[in-house]
Design a protein around this nucleic acid. Structure first.
Lengths: 322, 322
DNA sequence: CTGAAAGCGCTTACAG
DNA sequence: CTGAAAGCGCTTACAG
């Protein structure tokens, strides 16, 4: 490329990066030739030289839960708008493989990492990351005892609001939460309990903890109905669990919401499919991704202030399942 | 790192890469120190030196359609199993931004690219890519007139099989396909038509082409029912369209499948939600991703044979909507 | 068996 | 205003 114009690589670099020290005429000529040849600087070489790669890493748990792809979409879109590229790595639902995924990402000189499913046992890995000076942010889940940038919603308040809204006239209430150690699931379950407590009630002890899957919803609903017959209301930790609960209602001939009311959480696209129009909380997944990138970007640019906590607005959607 | 052991970087490189020319004793010592210090070679430097980055790029259209995340999951999993990392880039539904996404990926020295939503107008971009020696593969959609590695299913046969299966007793049949230029949508629509033709029938001309979205399903169903009243069967280009059609059936008090039968395509997880149990075709999305990586990997390793076409098995799932 | 040197493709002080 | 040189962190022929 340099040879084509008859100058040194240095001059090309100056010209293309708009630095002073090269005449306008020559600059234009170099730019023209670069365009013509389709010359583009190697990001590898630039990264190595500058120590800045414009790359970030995103860690996602498995994709059976459509929550994550939409979050990822926000991250990729936000990154792309800033000229950054995104390595996406996949980790187990329980955060298995976090460590190896992280080291692969760090080896590739990601300038920042975004985590979407942290659990308490990830603390050593994260403090190690911090010690190595790699900025990171948490999306959705957070960890008690680890101050870090975080983007999410107030799951407690949202669950309390949703539950209060549908509680009227419902006596026996089950809360089908998610994994015990997930801050998000814990917040949602606590919010539901708080709403019940405000009405002077306590939830049934059945099925409070479990996976955020449809199968888990099915299993827990079967066990619950076997043990207690149809209950009045099942508050679910996410829409997917709610789907499983409604599968069981259907299988046992129970009408939703007349016999059993059901609420979800997240407002996935399928939550309002056909006759099934789930009462749930809309979580701004895409925006969470964008905001997380914005925060990480600031860190990458050297911001060293206090951990930033971004709590986004949610929307309770009352439809026809509760 | 080299200094810590008191040898040159060269010796460290030899030791860590298991090359001959360094005593076992020294090798062990170097490995021990490397582990202790958490030393990991910079992928940037290795990439620059070797011209091999162990990185691939995946281009996805927007994620509203849950088809793609599961495909992406297969790609990421397959790549990870081979020690490769994946840059994920997002392009518009109609392949807008393909060119700029591709050049960003190429700048980052991706050794191969995987496309999931190519259209005929992408041909120049792809031939240019080939001219530059960057291997690529197509998943799901392909393009007539461009020989390239491809992984997918036989959409024509699957749609024909599905349609024949549910055709009995259904007189007026609409086919709600996807975008005209998508090979996948075209194949599915043609398969449905072939099944109809075999029964001596032709589809209604309404709504044959449209987006693969729920909104499009809603709009087309409304227009169809307005024009012709309830039809006997609507064959949809994917599950999401089918969802929209069933929304309209519900809104107009039409029973599925008694008044209107509906079929989908893809078998997304929500396709069998509660009372809604869509008759559809299961597409092995995850496996498509894995196979595409395997094929691309061979190319990256220098395989230059004929374009490889991998047609994966599908499964027709007859449930209760048709 | 080990060390010194060149080079991957850039950028950036530093001389001219 | 332009060119020669060093260096980012590695790997790999090439001498010793």
């Amino acid at each position: 490329m340099a040879r084509a114009v008859g100058v040194t690589p240095a001059t090309v670099s100056y010209a293309l990066n708009g630095l002073p020290g090269v005449s306008e005429e020559l600059r234009d000529q170099i730019k023209a030739v670069a365009d013509e040849m389709g010359f583009r600087p190697s990001r590898l070489a630039v990264g190595l030289r500058l120590g800045r790669t414009n790359t970030l890493g995103l860690l996602l748990p498995d994709v059976a839960n459509p929550f994550y792809p939409e979050l990822a979409s926000g991250v990729i879109e936000g990154a792309s708008a800033e000229g950054m590229q995104v390595f996406v790595a996949q980790v187990g639902l329980d955060g298995r493989d976090h460590a190896s995924a992280v080291s692969a990402l760090v080896d590739s000189h990601c300038e920042g990492l975004l985590f979407t499913a942290v659990l308490p046992h990830d603390i050593p890995m994260l403090t190690d990351l911090r010690a190595r000076g790699v900025p990171f942010g948490l999306i959705n889940r957070r960890i008690e005892g680890l101050d870090a940038d975080w983007v999410g919603i107030d799951d407690f308040a949202a669950a309390r609001e949703l539950t209060s809204l549908v509680l009227e006239g419902r006596q026996s209430v089950a809360v089908f939460g998610g994994p015990e150690r997930s801050s998000v699931s814990a917040g949602r379950a606590a919010g539901a309990r708080a709403a019940l407590a405000a009405a002077g009630r306590t939830p049934l002890p059945d099925g409070m903890v479990g996976d955020l899957t449809r199968e888990s919803g099915v299993e827990r609903a079967r066990a619950l109905f076997d043990a207690r017959g149809p209950v009045d209301l099942v508050v679910c930790g996410n829409d997917v669990i709610a789907l499983g609960v409604m599968d069981v209602c259907h299988e046992r001939g129970l009408a939703v919401p007349d016999d059993v009311a059901v609420t979800g959480f997240d407002d996935m696209s399928f939550a309002s499919a056909g006759p099934l129009r789930l009462t749930t909380v809309e979580v701004p997944r895409h925006e969470m991704g964008r905001q997380a990138v914005a925060g990480l970007r600031r860190r990458m640019l050297g911001f060293t202030g206090e951990p930033q906590v971004v709590e986004l607005p949610y929307t309770v959607r009352r439809r026809n399942t509760a």
